[in-house]
Design a protein around this nucleic acid. Structure first.
Length: 371
DNA sequence: TCTGGGGTCCTAGGACCC
DNA sequence: TCTGGGGTCCTAGGACCC
């Protein structure tokens, strides 16, 4: 989906079309309807506090404002940009709508998050571009939103292609076009090559996918290890055999929170304790609502200097009760030194097993030791 | 005035078992 | 007195993605 969160907001606020709009922030005010009936919006320059850009419109991106950027920094680049609070319920609603629209045409779908999917089109006997146009049309009819589609022989290339003609684009690519259309791109366009790997490649003199493709696989194995080295080599040549994963169970469920200001374990004990307990209760709610119990409870803590530490505890039983989670998380917390100020706390439940009705207790009994 | 929140996957070391 | 080889589970950290 194109600039998904921002585009959903524009459905509610059409008068903002064509403007630099940013979604994000923690305590952003909803637009206010004024006496003359027009709406008054917050501006980026008025924002104070922590928070990052979740999504920006293409007009905002023209100012250099992208997802993940701190709002204070964005405000320097585009002070007049409109700032809207995130409205996740609406995004989930439109996410379900667009996925259903695609499924009505091509039902083999791998979910890749709220605004992205892989679709298996190989069994659909229709000319490729016409099919892509039909899917885009169905998505627009269902949601009023545009998307960009990449069509190729595999997931790796399709993902790259989907970004080549954004927004509202269609890109079809065959293997024979890789040298001309893929090799000139930056290595980090490969899904899985992030900032760290990209930096390391650059230090080795490799910047483009073509330069990566030109390196002997032995060289890559030498610098990145066997499995990553081979993967880098294959990816640069457009080779990717991964099948679509159409069903999966969650591996973990977590909640975390960055504080308005850094807190001290001793001085702000009461406040921290309240946040900690609330995170545990929210994880418990999520577990129950989604029908899972967890055997491993973990916590995450980020210090003021942004260093993160984690601790976890595996129990003999599976739990989904807030108090039990709070107790396990408390044990984890005891193992972390708390001399410095903290900016974030998180609680995570993993080693999940499905629970059906009364079987929560059963899950515990089954995994208990025999003595 | 840096840097959200929810995830997955991988690696590596140590405990422990056969 | 010295010390194999294979396997699983747990823990901690980190890269990466949406």
């Amino acid at each position: 989906m194109d600039a998904f969160f921002a585009s959903v907001e524009l459905l509610s606020f059409p008068e903002l079309r064509g403007q630099a709009v940013v979604v994000g922030g923690r305590s952003v005010h909803q637009p206010v309807v004024q006496l003359d009936g027009t709406r008054r919006f917050s501006r980026l320059r008025d924002y104070v506090g922590r928070g990052v850009v979740t999504t920006s419109t293409y007009e905002a991106r023209a100012f250099g404002v992208f997802s993940g950027m701190g709002l204070m920094k964005s405000a320097r680049l585009a002070p007049e940009a409109i700032l809207l609070p995130a409205n996740f319920d609406a995004y989930r609603h439109y996410s379900r709508k667009f996925k259903a629209a695609v499924a009505s045409i091509a039902p083999i779908i791998e979910d890749r998050g709220i605004d992205e999917i892989y679709i298996d089109l190989s069994a659909i006997p229709e000319e490729t571009k016409a099919l892509a146009r039909r899917i885009k049309h169905a998505v627009f009819e269902a949601t009023g939103l545009t998307c960009s589609i990449g069509i190729s022989p595999n997931k790796l290339l399709s993902k790259i292609c989907s970004e080549l003609d954004k927004p509202d684009g269609i890109t079809v690519l065959g293997m024979e076009e890789i040298p001309a259309r893929i090799w000139p791109l930056a290595a980090k366009k490969i899904n899985g090559i992030g900032p760290k790997s990209s930096e390391k490649l650059a230090r080795l003199g490799i910047n483009s996918i073509g330069e990566l493709a030109a390196m002997p696989v032995e060289f890559l194995v030498q610098h990145f290890g066997r499995s990553t080295g081979i993967w880098l080599h294959e990816a640069a040549h457009g080779v990717d055999e991964r099948p679509l994963v159409t069903e999966s169970e969650p591996k973990s469920i977590s909640r975390e929170s960055t504080f308005e200001r850094d807190l001290h374990a001793r001085l702000d004990r009461a406040e921290l304790s309240k946040i900690f307990t609330s995170l545990c209760m929210r994880v418990a709610d999520d577990l129950k609502r989604k029908g899972y119990a967890s055997q491993t409870i973990g916590i995450k803590l980020r210090y003021a200097d942004f260093r993160a530490v984690t601790r976890d505890l595996t129990m003999q039983v599976h739990v989904n009760d807030g108090n039990q989670i709070r107790k396990a998380a408390g044990e984890c917390l005891k193992r972390i030194p708390l001399t410095q100020k903290i900016r974030l706390l998180g609680v995570r439940a993993s080693s999940l097993v499905p629970t059906v009705g009364e079987q929560v207790e059963m899950a515990g009994i089954q995994t208990e030791l025999p003595f």
